[in-house]
Structure formats: C-alpha cells, structure tokens
Design a protein around this nucleic acid. Structure first.
Lengths: 233, 233, 233, 233
DNA sequence: GATGAATGAGATTTCATTCAT
DNA sequence: AATGAATGAAATCTCATTCAT
C-alpha cells in the first residue's frame, strides 16, 4: 500500500479510536469496538497498531503534533508582531487547544505525567512493554520538548525586540507561562465540559487574568526584580 | 475483628499497595503482588478492598486526608498571623506535599481529572462500576472541595484583617492560587524524581517565584484592577 | 488442590477431550468445545493443559499407559504359562487394544511416527514448540520403549523355559511380532469401525493367522534357520 | 496458460511443498513459506491449490501414483518370472519405496488412516470441508485400491502358474503381505532416517526375513493348513 | 479469615484463506 | 496472473474477581 494510503487509513482508525475513547474511556474501550467503529477487523486494527497502548500513544502523538502545528500557526501569524504578543498568543492557544479538545489535553497531560519516571532515561520500570516498543513513544520523545522550545524562542525574540523587558532566562519565563497554563487547563478539566463555573467563579475570567498577568510580568521588570531580590514588595 | 484492628490492617495494605504502585505503576501492578507485599492472600486483600479501583481510591482518599490534615496544621500554626501569610503558607504546603509525595500528588491530580465528567453529576459513563460502588469514592466526594474551601477561608480572613487588600471574590483568588500551584506540581512531576533542573532551570526558583507573586497579588490592588478593567497596565 | 483431586480432574478433562476428538477429529476440535464438554472454562482447561498439543500428548500418554497396564495384566495372568504363550498373548492384547480403542491406537501410531525425526535426539525441527514444552512429551519418552521391552522379556523367558525354541535375539523376534501386529492394526484402522471385511476378506482371520504364525515361528527353528541361511527353503 | 505449462508449474509447487513439509512437517508449514520456496506468491499458490489440505492431498496423489508406477515397472520386469517372485518383488518394492521416500510413505499411511472413517462411505464428519472439495481426494478414491489389486493379481497369476501353491483367496494373501510390509514400514519410520538399528537390531534383516517368510508361506501349504485348521502345528 | 481453584472478559497472535487492484 | 491488504476462526494469555472448602 502506498504510504500515503496507509497514512489515511491510520488516521481513520485513530479518529475512530478517539470517538470510542471519548465515550467510554481508554480502559473500557475494547479493541473489537474500535475496529468496528473504524469499519475493519480486529486483526487489521492490530496490523496498524500493535497494541492498545500503541494506539493510545498514536493519539498522543497526533495531539502533540496538532498542538505544535497550532503553535507554528500562531507564531507565523505573529511574526511581525512583538515577541511579547506572540508569546502570550502561544500560551493562549495552548489553553484554547486544551479547552476545545478535552481528549487531546487529557492524553497530553497523561503523557507528561508518564515520562516523569523516564525523564532521566533511567527508570523505565513503570512503562509497559507495549509502550517501550511503541514507535509512537519513540516519535513522541523526539518532539516532546518542542512546545516549550517554541515558546521560549518567542520570548527570546521579545527580549531582542524589546517587548519583553526583563533579562530573565527565557526558559524560566517559559516554565512560568506553562505552569500557569497547565494549572488553568487542569482546573478546566476538573470542571467538566459544561461552561459551568467552578465554585461559582467563571473560569474564563481566570484565563484572561492569567494571560494578562503573564503579559504584564514579561513587559516590565517586576519579574526580574523579584528573582533578584527574591522579593516582590 | 475489632474495628481498630481492621483499620490497622487496612492501613498496612494501603502502604503495601503504595510501595507496589510506586515501583511499577497502577496499571502494571497486580493484585497478587500487592497481596504478597502485604503478606496476605489475594482473597483477604479483596475482603478489605473490593476492587483494585477501590484500593486506588482508598489511597486517593488517604492522600486527600493527609493533605487536608496538613492544611489544618498550617492554618493552626498561622492562626495569629495575617490571613495573607496563612493563605500563602497553605499554597506552599500544597506544593511541598506534592513534591514530597509523588504518588499522592499523582493520585490527587488523577482524581481531579476523573471527577471532571462527573462534576455536573451528569455523565458517569466513564466511571467504572467498581468506582461507582467504591465507598472511598463516596467519601472522597464528601471532602474533595475542602482544600479549596480552607484556602478560600484564609484569604477571606486576610480580607477581613486587611492583609489581603483587594475585594475580589476569595474563591477566584483561591482558584488562581491553586491553578498556579497545580501547574507547578505538574511541571515538577514531569521533571522526574531527580532534583535535576528542567531545561536547565531550577524549579525551586519557580516555586518561590510563584509564591511571591501570589503574595504580591493578594496584598495590593493590581489583581482587582485587572479584573475590573480586564487590563493590567 | 490435592494431587489426587487434580489428577481426577485431569482425567475428566482428558475423557471430555477424547469424546470431542473422536467426533470431530483433532484439528477441528476447539479448545472452547472441549472445555464446555468437560464443564469448565477455557482458561481452566489451559491451566491443566497448556496447549492443545499438550492435551493431545496427554491422551497419548494415557493410551500408552493403558497399553502397558494391559501388558502387565496379561503377563501376570500368564506368569505360570510358558513364555511362548505369554508372548503371543501380549501381541494379541496389543491388537485387541487397538481394535477396541480406535482413538488410542491412532494417537499411539501418530506418536511413533512423530518421534521418528527425534529418534536420534537430534533433529527436533519438526516438533512444535508446544510439543517440546509438553510435560507429557517428556513422560512419553520415559516409557515409550516399555511395550517393546516387556514383549522381549517374555520371549526371553520363553527361551529359558524352552517354549521358544530358537536362539535368536529376543529383540529381533519382538520387532517381528510388533511389525506384524502394527501392520494388522494399520489395516484394521483403514477398514473402518465396522467389522466390514476389507476387500471381502475378514480381517479377524488375519489376526488369528498372524498370531498362529508367530507362535509357530517362535516354537521351532524355522526362524533361526532362515536368519542363518538367509533362506527358508 | 497451456495445460502443459500449468502442469509443470503445479509439479514445481508440489516439489517446493515437499521440501518444506520434509523440513518442518505439515502442521508447521506455512502457505507463505511454501509459496516463497516455490518462488511465487500466496495467491498464486492458491490459484493452483485451493487449500493447504488440497496441496497435501496432491502430494498424496503423486505418491500413490509413483508407487503404482513402481508396481507396474516391477510387474513388467517380472512378467516372465513366476507369479510368486513377482508378488514378492512387488512387496519388496513397496518397502523400498517407503524407505527411500519418507515423506511419501508418511502421506500414504496418513491417507489410509484417514479414509478409515470413510470406508463405508458413511461418516465423513471428520473430513475437512477442504478435503471433501479437493479434486485430489476424488482422484485418490479412484486409485486407492490399485496397489492392493495389483498385488493380488500377481498372486493370482502365481496360483495359476503353480508358483503359489496354496488355494487361499489371493486377497487374503495380499492383505497378509501388506500388513507385514506396512508393519515393517511403520517400524522403519519410527526408527528415524539414520540407518541406526532399533534396539540394537538391524531392521534390514527384518525386511529380508519378512520377504523370505512371505515367499515361504506362499509357496507351500502351511498357510492353507493353518487357515483350514486354524492351527499351524 | 485463609487457601487454591475457577471464572470471565478482553488483549494478542497465528494462519489459512479471500479481496481488490 | 501477481501483489499487498484484509478477513475470520481459533489459539493463547493475562488478570481482576469470585467460589468452594
């Protein structure tokens, strides 16, 4: 089969799996059902994805890929805008991406939790055999840092064009932005699909607040001062 | 068996399970192994915890309980200090708690991700039967909001004693503090057990930075201004 | 489970398998069906017999065991009779055994065909992994020569008590008796369950004829003469 | 494709299959491997032989054909010799044929075991669909009795020309000869490819002995006496 | 309550066989 | 006809969970 054709089939299967996972969750999903949803046989399904784990990681890979694509799109759109704006836009797009695609955000967060024990490349005890053998696991390792790096690059650009005033290590600022965003996303997730406010507080406000705060911090010296004095007052 | 005796045995089993989960992860852990680690048989294990799910939720419940205990301790210690300091101390203790107990932070975050689809009490599709029947699931629902509420209460106290200057809904401020903290914890998790810096940046700095930032925001009007104008400048 | 209890269950399963194999043949028999026939689950079936092959070999082992038991019974019954009579009775019991138990004779002949490539212990290429791992395969190897040896022993006894006149190597005479008997059995098998005569000739006559011939050859010197002169005249 | 061309290809495939079966056995042989060995694809293989079963039967048919050819050759060569000598030569050629072509002897014996349940034409339960539909199965049925009949014919000729003294039904004598030969072949098979003696007894001796015995029995009245008196003494 | 055996559900594998191009 | 992909049936395995003693 031509590679392109196989890729299309693969994508179809992944979409079917997404639908099934979205409804019943990963654990409850049966390979049989996923195959049926994709209109193929179990064996064919296995010929594309060697294990349920692998299929899951394929979805994770796709999610990460989509997120990265989105980042590139945002960066491209903001290439003439100041680095500061671009950075903030990137973070915003991450939050939106997660809000709009619950399954994707879930697998991504799952993935980042999973690689924890692997981060040093040492202890793979907790990984399933299936995971270790998954080609998508390998692929993921190749791009897992890209989102961070892209964010950092925009902040760096901001430092150069002057929109990001402080001289703090862009990586640190990236981490700050990401931790803020991930925290938001986690809360969103915990609040369910409904736009129902959590504890009577609209979460949308929190997103805007977070973004504005980040923007504020990047565009003046407060952050730098704080780190230097370890004191904000 | 006396209740107290049973409780001790339960605790022993939970500790054994924690050790096993910590080494091989939840999915790879076999009930057989957990029983062996606890020095009992599978059937006895089941007489204590009706399902693997339930055992997991028991650990979750214990984690939440421990976190709440910690919160009460911190609050008690700070009961004469200004509400602001107490609030910040609570958030700090959450971050420390998660850093010190990876397994606990993991199960707590997992739990919060899980209840997402349940938050409205609507869609329980994705919950396992075992989960729905778990007594710990029920118990968890009874206390799951407590950490948030305790945090909010301290902020409220801060508003009353003047240490928290702004008049923003304490719940919102709590959410902000939590999202910040959860974000930090997630990043920590992704960086592995080793205190190795992520992307060459020390994460401890991020914790301090976050806490100082939160303290700063609570103690002046910037937050309020921003929310009112939806603008920080 | 007590060994004896397990043995009983094993025997039950084997009987169930025999019934199924007898009806549909080995290849067409499904493990599921055998389990059902035995009133257990597939998994339980597998916990007793690790593979279909192994189950088959278990039946083979049982068959050989039964044959050997039969031989001992016949020998015991003839222990005061001349060795010649005993030898012939052994051969007759073999033929009867095969006639009465088609499945058993089939598996035994199959087994002897199978070990061919193994006889030197060299080339195990043709054996399935499952076979090589089968405990019954090992057990079979331990007793596979017993029937021959028992036959030879009776002939030897005949030589000593004078009922077997010639001085030919008892092993050779055994081989002759066995080849005669196996040939008969093979023909019987090819003629079906019905006592229907093959090519209009009653096979029972052949059995009697063979036995009488063997008896005759053992009790005079014709055999010896022939071997010595390589000539019967 | 011209018929002749197709026939050649068919023969090539069969030879390839023989090689594969010889190495790994029928059960372990994969159609894939056979196709590869024949230098064609699986689908092409299937266009020649509709099933593995059928391919196997094709080999069986070929074997039987070869055996029959051999018989005709022997008979032709002995057409001026006494019927007795010809009969014995036929039996000898059968034994040699089986010794020289293990695979062929195996499939032939297998075939005769298989038709057992069919002999009355009643119970076809154990036959695979594939077998029932196989054209070679049909062809085999047409010639399966030929070897017996050819043997019987030579014995009959012997009776007429006086070289076979007794007046026993030639069919019975044929059966005797065949059972003797098959028995020998089975033992040979069980003793492996190596000319290693079984139980320290040279099997070649057994072949000669058997042939001489048969010759002896056919050429005097012992056989007849025995059948009539059911007694050899 | 403890123990070993059994169950049930589903994942995974292996092939013979068939389809579509 | 040839090829690569897909099917279907059954074997095998892994575990959480339950039963029987």
């Amino acid at each position: 089969m031509k590679d392109s054709k196989r890729a299309i089939k693969e994508a179809n299967i992944i979409e079917a799996a997404e639908r099934v996972f979205a409804v019943v969750g990963f654990k409850n999903a049966k390979m049989e059902d996923i195959a049926a949803e994709a209109g193929i046989t179990k064996v064919t399904l296995y010929s594309y994805f060697q294990s349920k784990e692998n299929l899951y990681l394929a979805i994770t890979y796709k999610s990460l890929q989509l997120l990265i694509d989105e980042f590139y799109r945002v960066i491209e759109k903001n290439k003439t805008a100041p680095g500061l704006d671009s950075s903030i836009a990137v973070l915003e797009s991450f939050m939106n991406f997660c809000e709009d695609n619950y399954l994707y955000s879930e697998v991504l967060l799952d993935y980042f939790a999973m690689i924890r024990s692997t981060s040093g490349g040492m202890d793979e005890t907790k990984l399933t055999e299936a995971t270790k053998e998954s080609i998508y696991y390998m692929k993921l390792q190749g791009i897992q840092n890209l989102p961070f790096k892209l964010t950092a690059r925009e902040i760096e650009r901001g430092q150069k064009d002057g929109s990001v005033l402080n001289r703090i290590d862009p990586m640190f600022q990236t981490l700050f932005g990401w931790s803020m965003s991930i925290g938001y996303v986690k809360l969103i997730a915990a609040s369910g699909e409904s736009p129902a406010p959590l504890f009577n507080v609209g979460l949308t406000n929190l997103k805007d607040f977070n973004l504005n705060l980040a923007s504020h911090l990047l565009s003046n010296n407060m952050m730098q001062d704080q780190l230097e004095n370890n004191n904000l007052s």
